[in-house]
Design a protein around this nucleic acid. Structure first.
Length: 470
RNA sequence: GGCGAGGUAGCAAAGUGGUAAUGCACUGGUCUGCAAAACCGGUAUGCGCGGGUUCAAUUCCCGCCCUCGCCUCCA
């Protein structure tokens, strides 16, 4: 079964088939490591992770490249502010990013190149662009890409004649002092001349000391690890313009290839009805949510619960909903284990089985929410206690096939003593048990209500009771 | 102004030219001293608004309203 995926460039869905017939090669724009990534950033990385998992579960090997932007205005500025070397500063945030990725059950990319370690590659690309007449050095030592030299500029974003529209934007960027030496406002920097405020962060180049522009690193590293043409390029929807447009221009003008054949863009996570952003202060990190008692697996579940192409409304409450949904999955798994299924089925045994409709839905433009609906549909009509042993095994393997495809790890069941009960709650619960034993129903019920008001539920059995959070 | 996405039950969110998945929440029943869990059932005559095409539209077409994103370095 081939995955079909919408392509930003053609605005149509296409089956995903590897250009080389063997391995699906794709590039994802990675994080700028100058602070903690927020869950909006992670929506994109999670969607890319699902993309990769679906291909691999479908039997297609992948080559996944995702860069680290560890040299740019923000990393340089904030490392200096922190009094650290750029290397130490970006290493710290890279490690934090990796920890968050692991917590979210993201598969590590096969290659994770660092921009600062590929400056020679970027310089080589600039030299080629200058030789071919697509770039020029300005008097101050910066180098710019000449947008007018590339006829197809704007094809991805459908933004053309951009200069005519300048002024419509409220951004102050265009007036930045950086931009003074450009021939045209549309031109963008390939190499930025050293500035005093960059401190020790500059590198030698044929045009003087400086550092690479942001857009260039992705073109250079994609070329290095994926070649002149590769299958899919992905990122957040806001990168379409100018970042991806610029990448296309740089790559197509410096090589003989067509660069990425398919563009996969993920729409933003919405919070408070708008885009989550640092400047608006409505930004959540994984750590923020962990402090509020949520597990990253619950965050992942929320992030995949909307289709990647549509805005997804995030609320803290949605994490509670995710927790219950995950419990439902875990309970189904437990019921199948009670029928003799292994805790973790062998990967080689995984097959969609009774979850085939969910698998088909997932392969239709990565429809995770639709697939989740189909998964629960199958669960609701599959009664572990009454089906045959073979059916139980098939259901178990199918469930785990789907969980692997969407990257969901089952949580421990809440009833299994995974939550610590505070001493005062335990004491109240014991008092209620005593009241119940002496058949003092009034006192027993009063204590139950009291505990419930405190957020705890008593679950009685013949031998005793357990206390679980509400 | 240009380009793009979206408006489906309390919340979230799929979907389709043939009469609305799923999760959470809520709720009725069985069970239980009462609960919980489990199981059985219920909860949008309706899919932003107004027209049109059609035997049939939430799904196609036209117009309109609203929300959101991008328009130079934001996933």
């Amino acid at each position: 079964m081939a995955l079909t995926l919408h392509d930003t460039l053609t605005r149509e869905s296409h089956p995903i088939q590897p250009l080389d017939g063997k391995t699906l090669r794709f590039y994802c724009c990675g994080p700028t490591v100058y602070g903690p990534a927020h869950i909006g950033n992670f929506r994109t990385f999670v969607a890319q992770d699902v993309f990769r998992r679906v291909l691999e579960m479908g039997g297609l090997p992948t080559l996944h490249v995702r860069n680290l932007t560890d040299v740019d205005d923000k990393t340089i500025r904030d490392s200096q502010k922190a009094g650290q070397s750029l290397t130490d500063f970006t290493r710290f945030w890279t490690e934090k990013f990796h920890a968050d990725c692991a917590a979210l059950n993201l598969l590590p990319p096969h290659v994770e190149p660092s921009a600062v370690e590929h400056i020679p590659h970027q310089i080589r690309m600039i030299e080629t662009l200058i030789q071919r007449g697509h770039a020029y050095a300005a008097p101050d030592g910066s180098v710019y890409f000449k947008v007018s030299s590339y006829a197809d500029y704007g094809r991805l974003s459908h933004l053309e004649d951009r200069e005519l529209k300048l002024g419509a934007s409220t951004s102050a960027g265009a007036m930045d002092s950086d931009e003074y030496t450009k021939d045209s406002l549309a031109d963008f920097a390939l190499w930025k001349a050293r500035r005093a405020e960059d401190g020790p962060n500059y590198w030698p180049s044929p045009w003087g000391e400086g550092r690479p522009g942001w857009h260039l690193e992705c073109s250079a590293m994609a070329l290095e690890y994926l070649g002149e043409e590769f299958d899919v390029h992905s990122g957040g929807i806001d990168l379409i313009f100018p970042h991806h447009e610029n990448e296309i221009a740089q790559s197509c003008c410096s090589t003989h290839g067509k660069f990425a054949h398919h563009w996969f863009h993920v729409t933003h996570l919405m919070v408070d009805g708008g885009k989550m952003s640092k400047s608006l202060g409505n930004l959540y990190t994984i750590e923020d949510l962990q402090k509020r008692g949520y597990h990253p697996s619950e965050v992942r579940y929320v992030l995949i619960s909307g289709h990647y192409s549509a805005p997804l409304s995030f609320t803290v409450h949605s994490l509670d909903s995710a927790r219950q949904a995950l419990q439902k999955l875990a309970k189904f798994d437990k019921a199948l284990q009670d029928r003799g299924c292994p805790a973790v089925p062998a990967r080689a045994d995984l097959a969609p089985g009774p979850f085939t409709d969910a698998w088909e839905t997932l392969n239709h433009d990565l429809n995770v929410p639709g697939a989740l609906g189909a998964i629960f549909g199958t669960i609701n009509k599959t009664k572990p206690a009454t089906i045959s042993a073979d059916e139980a095994i098939a259901a178990h393997r199918g469930l785990h096939f789907m969980l692997e495809a969407i990257g969901v790890k089952l949580p421990p069941l809440i009833e299994e003593g995974s939550v610590e009960v505070p001493a005062d709650i335990a004491e109240l619960a014991e008092k209620r048990w005593q009241a119940k034993q002496s058949k003092d129903w009034a006192a027993s019920d009063a204590l139950r209500k009291e505990l419930e008001a405190l957020g705890w539920i008593i679950k009685d059995s013949k031998e005793g009771y357990t206390v679980i959070p509400k």
